[in-house]
Amino acid sequence: MNDIINDVTRALGRIDQRFYELPDIAFSGGILIDRDNIKQLEKRFMMEFSRKYTALMRDNGCLYNGVEYDFEIPKMFMWGKEEDFAIRETWERLNEKRDIDMIEYFTMLPDFLVHAGQNKQDDQRLIIEAKVNPNTSKNEVFKDIFHTFIYANKYNFQNNVILLINIELAKWQKWLLEYYKSYYLGNKNRWESIYIVNKKSYSAEIIVETIASFLLNKD
């Protein structure tokens, strides 16, 4: 692991148990009920993560000098002059899923990022998509995987993290392999920059893998 990913795991290890605890989540016909409540729970966890990570940034200023936190996911890769057919096709297919609104998701900010400005392709430090709900749906997972491949390929983020909290890594890996068969993957050379950081419970160890370790040699 590099220093940035080490700081991710250090910040994660400093989060108190109460931020891992979630109430029972109800589903109806496979559709998540009270999605706004889940968003608030995940937001609460990531706010605490941000607080812990910011403290580490102050301690390691040389790694994070001159960073910004704003970010926009433009639609140019689907409909503009820089249209990428593979991205557009994946977006359209995911948008057909009844439990996911890709129009909403494609305009949402990532859960956490550290970079030197959106146009500085050589200084995109860290971006995170997080899942905290243990009952998160497969299509929610697909959305985060899709976004993360875009971050790694189109924005050149050096550390693209999918953070999995309260989630079994084996179940997520099974869904990743389903995604792999049908959706946007970008360039294989970028897969080593995509990290999976998993902590399935407060008391569990932190597991760090790259998406390359799951996907290379699958053909």
Rank of each mutant, 00 (worst) to 15 (best):
T54A: 15
T54W: 15
A55W: 00
A55L: 12
A55F: 00
L56S: 04
L56Q: 03
L56M: 06
L56D: 03
M57F: 06
R58E: 15
R58K: 14
D59G: 09
D59C: 02
D59Y: 04
N60H: 15
N60R: 13
N60C: 03
G61C: 06
G61I: 06
C62Q: 13
C62F: 11
C62K: 12
L63D: 06
L63E: 03
Y64E: 13
Y64P: 14
Y64M: 09
N65D: 08
N65V: 02
G66N: 04
G66S: 04
V67N: 10
E68I: 03
E68L: 08
E68S: 05
Y69I: 06
Y69M: 05
D70A: 12
D70H: 10
E72T: 11
I73E: 13
I73A: 14
I73C: 07
P74E: 15
P74S: 13
K75S: 14
K75H: 10
M76V: 13
M76H: 15
F77L: 11
F77P: 05
F77I: 12
F77W: 11
M78E: 15
M78F: 10
M78K: 12
M78Y: 07
G80C: 06
K81M: 02
E82H: 02
E82R: 08
E82D: 11
E82C: 08
E83C: 09
D84M: 02
D84A: 06
D84N: 15
F85A: 00
F85L: 03
F85T: 01
A86Q: 01
I87C: 06
I87S: 09
E89F: 07
T90H: 01
T90L: 00
T90S: 13
